[in-house]
Amino acid sequence: MHREIKFRGRSIDTKEWVYGFLYINSNDGRTFVLVDGDLTEDFTAVVVIPETIGQYIGLKDKNGKEIYEEDIFCHPNAPKYKYVVEWEDGGFSIFIEDTGFKHNYIEVIGNIHENPELISW
């Protein structure tokens, strides 16, 4: 089974989200997302805000939108509650109480960087 490994981060210059490979320069600590190719082809290195880096968890929501670490979503069985995808103990964690979680039923409604008002903690 193939698992797609990719990351997203917000560009320091444009504040737009960029998607691709993660690279951290060991000399100066700058964080990049390498987009438009792979490490063997031509790519563009975009400097990103380190705190905004999130990994793709390999699943899509009910609308086909990729789910990333630190995304906020709701579930139709508990629409008033919001949940955040987090990295914990070597894996992605999504805790939903007694809702029968299935990723193809959830809907990503934002992320903690652009929509902090969606979460109450």
Rank of each mutant, 00 (worst) to 15 (best):
F21G: 00
H113M: 09
F32M: 14
K80L: 09
Y19N: 00
L22I: 03
D42Q: 12
E117C: 05
Y68V: 04
T14P: 07
E70K: 12
R10I: 03
F73K: 01
L39W: 08
G64N: 10
G110T: 10
D28N: 15
V85Q: 04
G58S: 11
N77H: 10
I72S: 01
K60W: 06
D71K: 03
E86W: 07
S93Q: 08
I5A: 03
H75R: 04
I109F: 07
F92D: 03
P76M: 15
D28H: 11
N77V: 05
K102D: 11
R3C: 06
H113G: 06
D28S: 12
K82M: 07
Y81T: 00
H2R: 15
T99D: 00
K60E: 13
E4G: 02
F95A: 11
D89Y: 02
H2K: 15
F32S: 12
R30A: 14
G64L: 12
N115H: 15
G100T: 05
K65N: 15
G29L: 14
Y105G: 05
E70D: 11
M1D: 12
I94Q: 07
W17P: 02
E69Q: 15
H2G: 08
N27Y: 13
E69W: 01
P79R: 07
G110W: 05
F95V: 06
E107T: 11
K62G: 03
V18R: 03
E114A: 15
I67P: 01
E69Y: 02
P50N: 08
F95N: 08
R3F: 14
I112M: 10
F95Q: 07
I67G: 03
H2N: 13
E88K: 09
F32A: 12
W121V: 06
E66C: 06
T31A: 15
G20P: 00
I49V: 03
G58Q: 10
D13S: 13
V47C: 09
E86Q: 13
F95C: 09
C74R: 13
I112W: 13
V33C: 14
R30F: 12
T52M: 08
Y68P: 01
Y105T: 06
R3M: 15
R10T: 02
Y23N: 10
W121N: 10
S11L: 05
K82S: 05
G90K: 04
G58I: 08
L39E: 10
